[in-house]
Simulated scan of single mutants.
Amino acid sequence: MRVAQALSHRAFQPTLVGALFLFAMFVMPSVLDATWIFNFTQMAIYAIVAASVGMLYGRVGLVSLGQVAPYGIGAWVTIRLAYLTDVPYPGVFPLLLIAGGLVAAIFGLLIGLPALRVSGLYLALVTLLLAVGIEIALNRIKLPTGGPGFRGVAFAIGDREPMPRPFVADGDVAFFRYAVIVAFVMFMIAVAFLASKPGRAWASVSQSEPSALASGINITRYKLLAFGLAAFMAGVAGGLYGAHVQSNSSIAQFDRQAALFLIAVVLMGGISSLWGAVLAAFFATIMLPFLTQNVIGHNFWNDFALTIFGIGLMINLIQTTKAMEKKGLLE
């Protein structure tokens, strides 16, 4: 019954989603070259992270600028475990993704604790500070590259090894299909939650916390559930990112600038629908690189990116202020 309810939810149109899924699985690999396959793989991964942000902000009303933190944590955990285990063995890599997602979910619950006391711009600042803390930690310990010890860092370039991939997704095209399937599963999980009791509770909390509380909704439980689920999704995406770029992973994907960029493109794609996450990922990983390489030029990139950050943050401020006025928190 829950599956049928999820499939009938307005945020998930089965026909269109099925067509896009089949197109991505069978048509795109046959017409795109290696560079575009790489970019569209990154799009599938980024869409999961964008969906986690959109779910928090658009569905629960929680303004989080810290989703790159569980994204980075999931990447570190999955990469480290991948070097310690026999990834090509069937079924191991999905377990590593789940492990990275669960560790990230625990961190997401810790991020969610301030949300019980603060909201709006204060929550945005708190989550951004937490993201900066994770950035500092990752800069300190580095992402594993196949070396010895707990950190697993190989400092000599010749000692670095690519992160192992599952045998069913060893090549770039196969891994693109693998990433699309995982993204599809993550979106289905999000839809299942949104179409069930948690989704209704989140909608009520987003509209008015006092009204939700008066209706008997446990606000604490559902806020923490939202942060945990969003962090789990971002953590799984982090694991995919590590396998995607292998030994060329970069801390820049998880820094404060990436955090601001993420919220900016999600706001532009749309926060009220999961389709907005797909648009945000397309804009961030396909359109902007294409414009940079073919239209704008590399010298314009930094100024253009900063403009996007400014627009996104301005929209963020306006929408948050309106939401607080609606809830009676501002005069």
Rank of each mutant, 00 (worst) to 15 (best):
Q42F: 11
L95I: 03
K223T: 00
F150A: 03
N294Q: 11
T41D: 13
G270H: 08
P88L: 07
H298Y: 05
E209G: 01
T320Q: 15
I217V: 15
A4E: 15
G199W: 00
L121I: 11
R221S: 00
F155Y: 08
Y89D: 14
I217K: 01
M43P: 01
L262N: 04
A323N: 01
A201I: 08
A24P: 04
M268E: 02
G216K: 04
A34H: 13
M233A: 15
G171P: 10
Q246E: 06
I111S: 07
R80E: 03
Q293W: 09
A50W: 00
G120Y: 09
V245N: 07
P289W: 14
A75I: 01
A243C: 10
S64D: 11
T321N: 07
Y222F: 15
F309Q: 12
G269Y: 00
A284K: 03
S204T: 02
T220Y: 14
V173Q: 14
N139E: 08
G147K: 00
E325R: 13
K223F: 02
L81M: 14
V63F: 09
E135R: 01
R200A: 12
L56E: 11
T41E: 14
F175C: 05
A19V: 15
I219F: 08
Y241T: 00
W202H: 05
D170L: 06
A75P: 02
T78R: 10
A214E: 05
N294M: 12
I157Q: 14
P14S: 05
V118H: 04
L32T: 02
R177Q: 14
A51H: 00
Y46W: 13
Q293E: 15
Y222K: 06
